[in-house]
């Protein structure tokens, strides 16, 4: 699976990326974390507040840093 972090490289985006990675690893999922910093691309997801979290091209959250537990809940089928 591909997890995208939308945001212009702010501290929150880094934290969100780390949390997403930790959540995926804890669940034994093979996830690739991609950082999207170009705001034309970010706009392509309809996001107005960063950081945004996109799981397999689906917007899962925007404007907040989700915890590892919250991301795990989103990742589980």
């Amino acid at each position: 699976m591909i997890i995208k972090i939308l945001g212009s490289g702010c501290k929150k985006c880094v934290t969100l990326g780390n949390n997403a990675k930790a959540a995926a690893e804890a669940m034994g999922k093979d996830a690739e974390i991609v950082k999207v910093t170009d705001f034309a691309q970010i706009a392509g997801y309809g996001v107005m507040s960063t950081p945004g979290l996109v799981i397999d091209e689906k917007l899962a959250a925007s404007g907040k840093v989700l915890s590892v537990a919250e991301i795990s809940a989103l990742l589980s089928p």
Binding site: C10, K12, A40, G44, Y45, G46, V47
Partner: peptide, 29 residues
């Protein structure tokens, strides 16, 4: 690309704990 961008609407409300956490994070950031 701006006019053709998708519009994503959410209607989430925060709990008080979340608001306080958000405010603390804002101060730090």
């Amino acid at each position: 690309f701006v006019r053709n961008a998708p519009v994503h609407d959410t209607d989430e409300t925060m709990m008080w704990r979340e608001r306080l956490r958000y405010a603390r994070d804002q101060v730090l950031e």
